[in-house]
């Protein structure tokens, strides 16, 4: 299991390093060199407009990473505090938070993201924000369930009796117990975000060819099946990034790896 973790961390590290290297202009069109196979000048070849696929992949990588970070931070920063408050306070506060959560959860995240990005445009930030906002409900539910369980433990009840401030109880005694199990979900939700963003770009919302996304690359080259490398690179990128987040955030794997 330690090997899986090391491989996952290694893949992410290599991707970050490789895509940080200087690359050509992803929007530079060269019609004299279209659909070139990999070469020294173009490590991953060129597309049907003669653009460097390596440069397209690099831009797509950073945009995808921005989406994951924005969506994850939004979900965690909204979902975890609300879940802690709902689980700990119960009563009217709990009812209000859970009703609002249920309302956001009945709208499918992908559909909400589709509507918002159609209006404001597909940027990594807008997509990440919407995916994060509508994904926060699951964090609220999971955090609340864990908080309800932990607050019944004697070490938490003792703090209540000792009149320890509620914020201190939540941060010192409840949050550490919530964080571990949530990490597992964090991995799968990050992977889901990568796939959702690729999906949004694929269905044509990221049509600005000067700022490519991996999903846009798949959409653009979907008919060029006689040049499978053009489909392979973005597919491989999406797959690797999704699986890497899934493995890195799995607490069971990290525990076994110790």
């Amino acid at each position: 299991m330690r090997i899986r973790l090391m491989v996952a961390a290694g893949i992410l590290g290599v991707m970050i390093l490789a895509f940080s290297l200087p690359h050509g202009d992803p929007s530079a069109v060269d019609l004299t060199a279209v659909l070139q196979p990999p070469s020294q000048a173009h490590p991953l070849g060129t597309d049907d407009l003669g653009r460097d696929v390596w440069a397209l992949m690099a831009v797509g990588f950073w945009r995808t990473l921005t989406v994951v970070v924005t969506a994850s931070l939004t979900s965690v920063l909204i979902g975890v505090p609300l879940g802690l408050i709902a689980g700990y306070s119960r009563g009217a506060v709990n009812a209000i938070i859970m009703t609002a959560t249920d309302l956001t959860m009945i709208i499918p995240t992908f559909v909400a993201a589709l509507l918002v990005t159609a209006v404001v445009g597909l940027t990594p930030f807008s997509a990440g924000l919407v995916l994060g906002l509508f994904g926060a409900g699951t964090y609220v539910n999971q955090t609340r369930a864990l908080t309800l369980s932990i607050r019944s433990y004697d070490y938490v009840r003792a703090e209540v009796l000792l009149a320890t401030p509620t914020v201190q109880i939540l941060l010192r005694h409840v949050l550490p117990g919530v964080a571990g199990p949530l990490m597992r979900y964090f991995g799968s939700s990050a992977s889901g975000t990568i796939l959702a963003y690729a999906g949004l770009a694929f269905i044509g919302l990221g049509v600005d060819t000067t700022v490519p996304d991996w999903g846009t690359m798949l959409y653009r080259h979907r008919s060029q099946i006689d040049h499978p490398l053009l489909l392979l690179w973005p597919t491989l990128g999406i797959f690797l990034l999704a699986i890497v987040f899934h493995i890195l955030a799995d607490p069971a794997l990290r525990k076994e790896g110790q």
């Binding site: 433990y153 004697d154 070490y155 003792a158 010192r172 005694h173 550490p176």
Partner: peptide, 15 residues
């Protein structure tokens, strides 16, 4: 001073 049945639940597992 109070001591409960299950020390695993009366001690904070994260401290």
């Amino acid at each position: 001073a109070i001591s409960w049945q299950n020390a695993l639940q009366s001690l904070n597992p994260y401290q």
